[in-house]
């Protein structure tokens, strides 16, 4: 991981705040796109994952967790308890899996695969909460769709991150 060096506490806090703001803007833009014609609830690209991934790759896992928690809090305030719980569990599980992959495989893994795993486990984290809330839900029907949509979402977000990266680097 090529952490950005020589940032003092205030700079790091400001940068995290800016990335959090861009995560909110990304999810707002995504909610304005027309819904995908897929017969499964909740399938989307998760564009705000771009911001979270940038944070995880270049600022460290602590900042990424902070963004996930802040975003869940924001969702909780604007859209209610269940939506907040979904956002929190998806975000935390996805960051944990991506962080473990980075830790275990280091340079041998590519951004693309990390992004795919992050998207897949974001979906799985949300589904765990849905199963806990609505007992007796059968997850197996949706697991194939979740895996497929996770792969697509992972490819989309990591490709976008790759093109946005030069702009983000100028931020620092």
């Amino acid at each position: 991981m090529q952490n950005i060096k020589n940032l003092n506490k205030t700079q790091l806090m400001v940068l995290t705040g800016l990335i959090f703001a861009s995560a909110l803007v990304l999810s707002l833009i995504e909610s304005m796109l027309p819904p995908l014609p897929i017969p499964v609830p909740g399938v989307k690209f998760g564009l705000s994952n771009i911001a979270v991934m940038y944070c995880l790759f270049f600022l460290g896992e602590k900042q990424a967790y902070i963004i996930a928690i802040l975003k869940a809090t924001f969702v909780f305030i604007t859209r209610g308890l269940i939506a907040g719980a979904l956002s929190l569990s998806g975000g935390i599980l996805s960051i944990t899996v991506m962080f473990l992959l980075l830790l275990l495989l280091k340079e041998r893994i590519s951004y693309l695969v990390i992004s795919i795993f992050g998207a897949v486990f974001h979906n799985i984290g949300q589904f765990i909460v849905i199963i806990l809330i609505y007992v007796g839900m059968n997850m197996w029907v949706y697991l194939p769709v979740l895996l497929l949509s996770g792969v697509v979402a992972g490819i989309v977000t990591s490709t976008l991150l790759r093109f946005i990266l030069p702009a983000l680097k100028r931020l620092v």
Partner: peptide, 15 residues
């Protein structure tokens, strides 16, 4: 760290 490796295709097909 690379953006994409050939072995990624294997991971994707396994998923």
């Amino acid at each position: 760290m690379k953006f994409f490796k050939k072995s990624d295709l294997l991971v994707i097909s396994v998923i």
